[in-house]
Design a protein around this nucleic acid. Sequence first.
DNA 1: ATATGTGCAAACGATTTGCGCCTTT
DNA 2: AAAGGCGCAAATCGTTTGCACATAT
Lengths: 143, 143
Amino acid sequence: MEGMVSLEALAEAFKSRGIKVTEQRKAICRELLQAENHPSAVQLHARLADHHPHISLATVYRTMRTLCDAGIVEEHDFGAGCGHYELAGGSHHDHLIDAESGAVVEFCDPEIERLQEAIAERLGYRLIGHRLELYGVRIDEIS
Amino acid sequence: MEGMVSLEALAEAFKSRGIKVTEQRKAICRELLQAENHPSAVQLHARLADHHPHISLATVYRTMRTLCDAGIVEEHDFGAGCGHYELAGGSHHDHLIDAESGAVVEFCDPEIERLQEAIAERLGYRLIGHRLELYGVRIDEIS
DNA sequence: ATATGTGCAAACGATTTGCGCCTTT
DNA sequence: AAAGGCGCAAATCGTTTGCACATAT
């Protein structure tokens, strides 16, 4: 269901936008591709450390910035004080954050999307973006 | 329609929670009461400078933290890199941010609130909070 | 060859904190 | 008098940037 599942596809996206395909960028993308969650720059840098101890944190930040600008990566905040990244190109979705574990669940609800546009219009605006985060606690099925 | 419109009411809220009523806190609250928007700590500190040049930025930050913890103030992010504050106690609402001017419009839509709870429940969570921000551009009525 | 990217360390902006003094309770 | 708050400067944290060298095109 995701748009870019391979390094090759990403490399193509890079070239088509004049972004050089370097070793560090490939390594960072590999990490993003296999990430189960939405890592921060620091987390990314730490995970990279195993196989690529020479990649600097500055490069991770610069790459995230470059790829966000190119629309290849999306940045989220989650109120954790630092940015969290994920490969874009997947289908649009919002996030529900488990208030206890910090786990992030993705979801998409067409009705809520429609409502948002309606609300913006009612206020005299054309919607160009939005941020929706739900914070919740698991309903213990066995309690 | 707001819950706390007077300094006196705020002072009472302070006392009931064991928060001392100091000059600086009163000055900060006065500023929040008459603010038309959601000021950041730095903005608040700047506005305070006229009549209270001795109030330090650290005190503004400490006060915001204390009052947020006490539920008297709410903090918002808006992706501007720094926190923005407003007195709580008013009715719940979300924000639409004018992407061009940065102006913030408050709104509340019961239907969207209901939908959020339904979505959380569907995912196995009980909703304890949320953040909804719409970003839009004004629809020029004369275009 | 040229433009771009990278590592390092220093710079940054927002926010927090240690400490000695001051004010509310 | 005791507890808590304040101002100041220094510290911290996430992120950015200047510079000299390295690499992709």
